[in-house]
Design a protein around this nucleic acid. Structure first.
Lengths: 321, 321
DNA sequence: GTAATAGTGTCTTTCAGACAGTATGAC
DNA sequence: GTCATACTGTCTGAAAGACACTATTAC
């Protein structure tokens, strides 16, 4: 309405991911609303030659963190996604990025810290089987939401979307459909950011699953997780998050943490060795208990020669239901 | 430098794709420089609730075209990508979209017309085998470019990138690496937009393969082709571009046109029928010559039930070299 | 009959998935 | 010895890739 609202501003958001203690973590900053937010920075239309360079610049300025792999995710431009816009400010469009790093380096910025991503998406961790939360809370409430619309706006399609996204259909759980699941929960009003700025919906006022993030940052993180889970299957990006040397068990645990599901040990080892992605260092790693393990390192050279092989993930037994 | 240059503007670009006569086509508009451009429109920060709605709005206003599937591709924000910026105007960031439609509807706008996408990327069409252009011009010139940098900035890595992208490595041709190939040609100065606004490079002044497009629109189109080729393998988006009913041969020819390579007839039919994506209409299609073919239609309902199956593409014999 | 396109049957190789087993350390 | 973790061998079934063959039209 005001002339100011006509203008547009571009902000960059980064989902910076690392893995420690078998938990994928995302770097978050605290806000005054006590809702964690993804690190953000301006896009300097004069100083930044490209948006990715701009992102690397302010991330290193703010956190002293060395980013490895960086990939543009998506540009989020929905109306009123930013409170400043509601207050009459410019429309703030955010270009979301996925960035990978090792957690060895701590962010210098005390306001930033690593936070386990499954805190925000508890339904995405299937390493101990299907999370009880899904059968106990999510599915019943989604079903109620699907029925509440009956028979007007295609309730069948809602039911189908639920079954497909949450692994109730014959095709089972698909670890990459993170965004589809989040969007269902959002539409059904089961995540509290859905009712921000609006009146809470009738059937589910105040309900929330998982930890809330500021603005639409949980949506950006959902996009990042889905993209990363897809990526590790055909590009060797996991190594950006692994220590320079590692045992095959550590490797497998890292992949399992990201994918949110258990893998077959035998098949995993066969595929990794067949892919030629790693080579033994000759040393052994002494664990707290059990037989010592051979130590490996990533083969930088092979990546390009063999046409960027990756990992196909095989499901472990007993993970289906 | 000027205060004006600090500001940012957002523009939306659409690669609108259809297939006719076994040629994938993209909708282009004429510019005063005689370089075809992708249709573009403003992002209305006040009127458009989302960017995708904004895109659909101006596309239908400009062309009366009904868009089917629409997907955000990438946001292009490199410095000086737009001539207005060089002239002191604002930094113009473009959000690129992929949109699919049938070509049955003609664009009402006389300035817009359908243009075969292989005109811009002649090296991407492998349906008659490896395009002679690759062995005769592209590879020799890329090799020269790789050697010219020797030994300073990793010539080995350049050589590897060339071999991998253009199918010279053992992994063979990968139809999805459209952007990687375009970027190599761009870096090597083999597409004339690379030298726009700069002095032509020493080894290849004025050289160009394929038809040039305005601004960085060929890069946007390369992104669109790569994304679409990847997508048709796991999501049934081809049907957005097919007639409502079709024969399996027409179906296969359309997929081949998009993928830029021949497929095995037997395998294609087996996979399509196994996927349950199509059902016979009971009618037959009478071709100009030869045996009449059964007519099929796409099964809307199955898509969701079966976990979004798609097409895995098997290479046809004799397409390798 | 020929030319041309439509459609089927089947063999081989590859590989994911599953299972069962052995090896080497600490205690 | 037990426990815990590391590592190997092999079977099976699904499916991709390749090839050869038959079917139905127009002429």
């Amino acid at each position: 309405m005001s002339a100011d609202q006509r203008s547009v501003a571009i902000e960059l958001n980064a989902a910076i991911i690392a893995v420690t203690d078998d938990a994928p973590r995302v770097l978050v900053v605290e806000t005054d609303q006590a809702e964690p937010a993804l690190p953000f920075g301006p896009f300097d239309a004069v100083g930044d030659r490209t948006m990715e360079l701009g992102l690397r610049r302010w991330v290193s300025e703010q956190t002293q963190l060395e980013l490895g792999y960086v990939e543009q995710l998506y540009t989020f431009g929905d109306q009123f996604r930013h409170p400043q816009e509601i207050a009459g400010g410019p429309r703030i469009v955010s270009v979301g990025y996925l960035a990978l790093t090792r957690q060895t380096e701590r962010p210098k910025n005390v306001q930033a810290h690593w936070s386990a991503w499954y805190d925000y998406f508890p339904w995405e961790d299937w390493r101990q089987g299907s999370p009880p939360l899904i059968a106990r809370e999510i599915v019943p409430q989604l079903r109620a939401w699907a029925h509440s619309a009956e028979p007007s706006p295609q309730p069948r399609s809602r039911r189908e979307r639920i079954d497909l996204a949450f692994g109730l259909a014959e095709s089972g759980w698909n670890d990459e459909s993170v965004l589809e699941r989040y969007e269902l929960l959002y539409e059904a009003g089961l995540v509290s950011e859905a009712s921000r700025g609006r009146a809470p919906r009738a059937p589910s006022g105040g309900i929330n699953v998982g930890t809330v993030m500021a603005l639409d940052h949980r949506r950006i993180l959902a996009t990042a997780i889905g993209r990363l889970r897809a990526k590790i299957k055909y590009r060797p990006v996991v190594f950006e998050m692994l220590a320079p040397t590692f045992t095959l068990s550590q490797f497998q645990l890292t992949v399992e943490a990201l994918a949110g599901r258990r893998l077959h040990k035998g098949n995993f080892r066969r595929l990794v060795e067949a892919g030629g992605l790693v080579e033994p260092t000759g040393r052994v790693h002494q664990p707290a208990r059990g037989r010592p393990a051979e130590e490996f390192r990533f083969r930088q050279d092979v990546v390009r020669e063999r046409g960027l092989p990756g990992l196909r993930l095989g499901a472990a037994p007993g993970t289906r239901s």
